[in-house]
């Protein structure tokens, strides 16, 4: 057996790369134990979140949003084995893409976000770090904070996070990228998009998120 390679160590879970998982390259997401929590409670939380995340990834596919293929879910070990998506994080390539391609990509991302919301899926961490650009187009990853809901407030929070990301990290192209995103989002979500976008504006004005100079 080849060694697992630690890709990322998060507060919630570790990401490991298995170069040869039954013949394929696979990503293993494992929610580690939390010593501070009561062991029984800890096991139950990790178990539930593992099942929940896998089911949301699955649900997203049904909505027409590309997500990693799930190979195996082991709730007792709090582990999901999934496809290792080959590509680059959108966050890392935005600045290098030519203008036309950049806008096209963000329109597609907007369409996908609209599809998620239309299927009552909230991503929970909708940033350009969690979208991988592949030869076949963007793939959405990390639904660890995802939930099933069609509340306008939650949609607004998703959108606000994307908008903040574009403002802080991709500040050179904030407006054109968000305009492209918005166009795609409206296209796939229809009338409900207006409400969600308005809520996003409102959320960004609340004290919690605002950056007053």
């Amino acid at each position: 057996m080849e060694e697992l390679i630690l890709i990322a160590k998060g507060a919630e879970a570790d990401l490991l790369l298995d170069p040869d998982w039954n013949g394929v390259k696979a990503l293993i997401k494992r929610r580690g134990e939390k010593r501070y929590r009561h062991p029984e409670l800890d096991r139950e939380i990790r178990r539930q979140r593992t099942i929940h995340e896998a089911s949301i990834i699955h649900r997203a596919k049904g909505a027409g949003v590309p997500t990693p293929v799930i190979y195996q879910v082991d709730p007792d070990d709090a582990t999901i084995v999934m496809e290792f998506v080959e590509g680059e994080r959108v966050r890392d390539i935005v600045e290098c893409l030519p203008g036309e391609e950049r806008r096209r990509l963000f329109k597609v991302i907007g369409v996908m976000a609209g599809r998620l919301h239309r299927a009552s899926i909230i991503h929970g961490d909708l940033t350009t770090s969690n979208i991988i650009n592949t030869a076949e187009g963007p793939v959405f990853v990390d639904f660890g904070l995802g939930e099933v809901s069609s509340e306008t407030e939650k949609r607004g929070v998703d959108l606000n996070l994307m908008h903040r990301m574009l403002t802080s990290t991709h500040f050179r192209h904030t407006e054109e990228l968000f305009a492209a995103f918005e166009k795609g989002y409206r296209e796939s979500l229809g009338e409900e998009a207006e409400e969600a976008l308005e809520r996003m504006e409102e959320i960004s004005r609340r004290g919690r998120y605002i950056e007053r100079e």
Partner: peptide
């Protein structure tokens, strides 16, 4: 207590890591 403080622990740990 276990539930209430476990929740606090999780959010605190995440913020500390962040």
């Amino acid at each position: 207590q276990e539930t209430a403080y476990g929740m606090l622990g999780e959010v605190t740990e995440r913020a500390l890591a962040h």
